[in-house]
């Protein structure tokens, strides 16, 4: 890929709104995400970040708005019209969850094979070739296992490949969920607070993993994050939400200095949410 070409815009969200009863959870939100970039979405608790992900991945149908995903070959997908599983399978938008959702009773490797379901199902000719043990299916399965092995190595889970996913320590479960999403070969990877609950060391490793994913696959990453150290170090672009509306959009440095952002964070009742970097920013602004 030529370094000089601008990253291609692959996700375009236009005037997205969704309402739950009297609550406007997402309010007229527009933003874009680019190829080979990490876009962070930050904001106080309840700002509507997870709701945006649920709209992108088809779990919620937005009341208003358009979500357009463009593949490298120029094909367009209007995500707000597609079923959740088709968004993952065809548009290749794959997500992780704020509360980890693994197949707990299945092995780590099996988790990664389930992520390759569509391709394997086709190779097994809807179980016919698989039942007969035809070589075409065995070859496809071998490729799938190799892909799984690759991501297990990247996430340092290779030694735990045959363990039950539910028995892994918390940090490993977070990494497994990312590995599983990568096995589905996403064009856009949506990570919902992947660093939540990690210790500083694990958090640092996560940064490296995300950078490696970006460098190796060029996958665009959309990242919801509370931990400002993660956001500031690795994101190319930051979007700040508050009460469902976008209040800032720009480079990490620009967002850190933004007054509206500082106010949003100051305005939240639980000031423990206040990220350290912002605290510095606020201190500066106050002077």
């Amino acid at each position: 890929m030529n370094k000089d070409t601008l990253p291609q815009r692959i996700l375009e969200v236009e005037r997205l709104s969704i309402r739950f009863g009297g609550l406007l959870a997402v309010n007229d939100l527009s933003f874009a995400a680019h190829d080979r970039e990490i876009t962070a979405i930050i904001g106080p608790n309840g700002a509507g970040k997870t709701t945006v992900f649920n709209c992108l991945t088809g779990f919620y149908k937005p009341g208003v708005g358009r979500i357009r995903l463009t593949h490298a070959d120029g094909r367009d997908y209007l995500l707000e019209r597609m079923d959740d599983f088709r968004i993952a399978r065809e548009a290749r938008v794959v997500r992780t969850f704020q509360n980890i959702r693994l197949f707990a009773g299945m092995s780590v490797l099996e988790n990664l094979l389930v992520a390759q379901h569509a391709a394997l199902m086709r190779a097994s000719l809807f179980s016919v070739a698989g039942m007969l043990g035809l070589p075409s299916y065995r070859k496809a399965e071998k490729i799938a296992i190799e892909r799984a092995r690759h991501w297990l190595e990247k996430t340092e889970l290779i030694a735990a490949a045959d363990e039950a996913a539910g028995s892994l320590p918390y940090g490993a479960q977070r990494r497994l969920e990312i590995a599983r999403a990568m096995c589905a070969e996403p064009v856009l990877l949506c990570l919902d607070e992947p660093a939540a609950g990690l210790n500083p060391h694990e958090s640092l490793e996560l940064n490296e993993l995300l950078l490696a994913i970006r460098a190796e696959t060029g996958t665009a990453i959309l990242l919801i994050e509370h931990d400002m150290s993660v956001v500031m170090q690795i994101s190319d672009h930051v979007i700040v939400l508050d009460h469902g509306a976008k209040i800032a959009d720009g480079s990490p440095q620009a967002v850190r200095a933004d007054e509206a952002v500082i106010h949003a964070y100051l305005g939240t009742p639980d000031s423990e949410d206040l990220p350290p970097d912002l605290a510095i920013g606020i201190a500066k602004a106050g002077r």
Binding site: T57, G58, F59, D84, F85, R86, A88, R89, E90, V94, R95, F97, R101, L102, F103, A104, G105, M106, E110, L113, V114, A115, Q116, H117, A118, L120, M121, S124, F126, S127, G130, M131, R180, A181, A184
Partner: peptide, 23 residues
Amino acid sequence: RLPAGRAWEALREDETACKSLGI
């Protein structure tokens, strides 16, 4: 041992996660 059977078990474990993986 086939994708169909694994998908059944995955569905038992977590339907939402299945959908997010294109099943």
